[in-house]
Amino acid sequence: MNFRVEHDLHKRRFRRNLGLGLVLASFVVLLFGLTMVKVTTDDFTMQPTSEARD
């Protein structure tokens, strides 16, 4: 007898967690892409640090 019966509820919970995981991973990739685009555009300037100002 199989004691590890996978109820439909567990399947749904897994799909939900998997979906959320993929969404979060995609968001990380998107943020990385956005950051790269922002820092490589011509008009991007870093705020001078206090040491550099001195």
Binding site: H7, L9, R16, L18, G19
Partner: peptide, 15 residues
């Protein structure tokens, strides 16, 4: 116990 819970949404439901 688990079966008695209702409203366990799928990812598609949130979508």
């Amino acid at each position: 116990t688990v079966t008695s819970q209702t409203g366990e949404a799928d990812f598609g439901d949130y979508f």
